[in-house]
Amino acid sequence: MFSLNYVRAKSLKHAAELLAQNPEAKLLAGGMTLLPTLKQRLARPSHLVDIAAIGALRAIRPSKGKLSIGAGVRHYEVASSPIVRQAIPALACLAGLIGDPQVRNMGTIGGSLANNDPAADYPAAALALNATIVTDRRRVKAGDYFQGLFATALEEGEIITRVLFPLPKQAAYEKFPHPASGYAMAGVFVAVTARGVRVAVTGAGPGVFRWNAAERALGRSLSPDAVAKLSLPADEMNEDIHASREYRANLVNVMTRRAVAKL
């Protein structure tokens, strides 16, 4: 890792000031993606601004009929929170499938959403549940927030503070994890909301996306059979040494059916 300066931010305001003063600074929360990136010398920030200790980012609470999760909340806290388990059990279940226990003890929801890895789990939940990403400047709907491979609507120096999840009537997440990394080769989050069914897919394409055809089919009939004959265009899927485009397209269908069966 290149030499750098570590600073522990005392407050959100302090963190924003540090970012403004140091254009090459990066935020550090759990560090589960950032530190491996630094160790490979793929990034060279002048400063790491550690926001993990900021109390304002650490709350899980109900908020006007929605569930509010602070950006600094760790995956194991979401997985084990009685509030999350009661409000959106599928979200707690998803958090318990990220990485491994040691990673879940450090990694945060804000870090995952800011990074927007195309195979990360949280983006699928945020998009399917129509979450709102709250920052220190504004609120952004998940549909506008995710902008493809590692790209988001976040501006320079903008800090995610919390995520607001509307409560679904029912929801379920199923993923086919890569056997070594645990990242989704295909992960599908199905949410049944008052405004219809939303299906968000991670791991299979260049970024999280909604599978509109499946949403329409499930809107007519909420059963695994409703999507059995649907197929995604394989040319829009990722291809690598682990799986072909066609295999990933098929996995999305299978994961969707499994998720619907779990509702």
Binding site: Y6, R8, L28, G31, M32, L35, P36, L48, D50, A52, Y76, P101, Q102, V103, N105, M106
Partner: peptide, 15 residues
Amino acid sequence: GRAVKSCTILAAQAN
């Protein structure tokens, strides 16, 4: 009190 991988944490984070 939580298990973590100490190769992926800065000593400064453990201050």
